[in-house]
Each structure stands twice: as structure tokens, then as C-alpha cells.
Amino acid sequence: PTPPYLKWAESLHSLLDDQDGISLFRTFLRREGCADLLDFWFACSGFRKLEPCDANEEKRLKLARAIYRRYILDTSGVVSRQTKPATKSFIKDCIMKQQIDPATFDQAQTEIQSTMEENTYPSFLKSDIYLEYT
């Protein structure tokens, strides 16, 4: 069977589908000062999984606010810098109007994913952290 670390090189999704891969990628991102990209990506996925039902509404709104405050509002943060202004406005509007759809963060997640696919993921595969691991 293919060792996990070779699968990690196939695609970002293969890497993010493996606990050890995530852990090593996080170590790399932390060193580069942009581990927030990874946490935000997972936060968006976790948010989408929360069922929109009456019992969950307060939790969903609270969580949406938490994600927004932590990653989007701080314009010096790496997630905010890599997210388009229109996407940030859209999320802000959703929260202000308390219209929290499961897809609220989808566009932002796509943009952050592109950033990882184009920059940090290829750099990770060339990094000494990954090469030493293999």
C-alpha cells in the first residue's frame, strides 16, 4: 500500500484527510506564521456540518460570530488578507441580519483553499519538515 506521506503529495485534500498529515502541515504553517489558514478551513467545514434547526440557531449564530471575529474582522490576520473584500462584506451582512445559512463561509473557504493550494501546500511539499518526515 502507498505510505500516507506519499498520498499527502497527491492533493491538498489527501493531506487534509489524514490526521498525521494535518499535524505536520500545521507545524509547517505555524513556522510560516499562517496556521490560521488551516484552522479557518476546518472551522468552515465544521460550521457547514451544523444542522440549521431551532435547537441549534443560537449556537450557529454564536459560532458564525466567533469565526468572523477571530479570522475575518482582524484585517492584519492572514485569513482576512487572503479573503476578497466582497466575500468579507457578504459574511458581515449575513451575521448583522442574523441570516446564517450553512453555506455562509463557503466562498471564503474556497478562497483560503486556493491560497493554500497555490502557495503554502506546494511550499510544504518542498519543506525540510516534509522531506525529513519522508
Binding site: 487534509l16 484527510d17 489524514d18 490526521q19 494535518i22 484552522d39 476546518f42 472551522a43 468552515c44 467545514s45 465544521g46 460550521f47 456540518k49 451544523l50 449556537k59 454564536k62 459560532l63 460570530r65 466567533a66 469565526i67 471575529r69 477571530r70
Partner: peptide, 20 residues
């Protein structure tokens, strides 16, 4: 009541793959 940080951490963890 969970703090925002706890809620956020729980959300991130819920999206991670389980140990294989």
C-alpha cells in the same frame, strides 16, 4: 455556556478526520 473559543475549537475538531 461555552465560551466563543471553546465553541470555535469544538467546531474545528468536529471537521477533522477521525483516527484511522
Amino acid at each position: 455556556i461555552d465560551s466563543e473559543d471553546d465553541l470555535l475549537q469544538e467546531c474545528i475538531t468536529s471537521a477533522m478526520p477521525k483516527k484511522k
